[in-house]
Design a protein around this nucleic acid. Sequence first.
DNA 1: AAGTGGACCTGCTAGC
DNA 2: TGCTAGCAGGTCCACT
Length: 272
Amino acid sequence: MPELPEVEITRRSFAEALDGATVTGVQLGKPLRWPLGVPIASLVGATVGLATRRAKYLWLPMSGPDGGLLLHLGMSGSLALGEERMLGPHQHFALHTSRGSLVLTDPRRFGAVVWSAGLAVDPARKLLAGLGAEPFDPALTGATLRAAWRKRRTPIKQLLLAGEGVVGAGNIYACEALWRAGIRPSTPGARLSEARCERLRLAVREVLGQALALGGSTLRDFSDAHGVAGAYQTQAAVYDREGQPCPRCAAPIQRVVQAARSTYFCARCQRP
DNA sequence: AAGTGGACCTGCTAGC
DNA sequence: TGCTAGCAGGTCCACT
């Protein structure tokens, strides 16, 4: 579920409320992707700072002990802020604080909550290493994307999903951005001119920006930390719209499988 | 080094 | 109505 807009919306929905809170307890459910990496008891009494985001990761800084929690929502995760209560069957992590409990619900358990002594040290350092630029970073340009992709024969859709060059677009928004930019998802990264890289940079920003403004996409069950769902999915031009007319040229939207993921595109107005 | 495919795990839905 | 196959928003890792 959660691509960059959903993660950022989640962050905004709880960050200020927890800034300055004191940790009163931690509860774990079934194992997530990796172990927490620190004894629960050592977090009690810590002071929570203001949550930040890098790509699809959230960083919840803490002091005493100094460090923080790196969170990832995986495919099916969402965070909710509320009163302390028993963990439900799909709730596998809860951070209880003086200002409420932050609970991770994640049926598929591809998500993660990992303690790290800082962003520049492992395990956070390793997990964040190699990520592309943030989509709204002013330093990101068509030229820097061209440089990142010029030697890659991998299809551009897969480069976007891998966060090479630019992070934040998952399966929905990668499809949407490529449609906006008029680029065929199968096009090798190296084939894109600087001008087309720039068009794609703008398209990624537009798509992610619009999704952010609409509260993200709610396909099944995404909601922010207060339970508010998103509305972007109703705006999608191609995603999950196989056979329906392209909003730009009316040709039927096609679905193909790339790297075991569904890709939706318009064969008429997205050129290789 | 780059590219590919499988792995992780559970739930929902379309189709028989 | 009930079962099954296929599919789902992500990303890491092992292998060629």
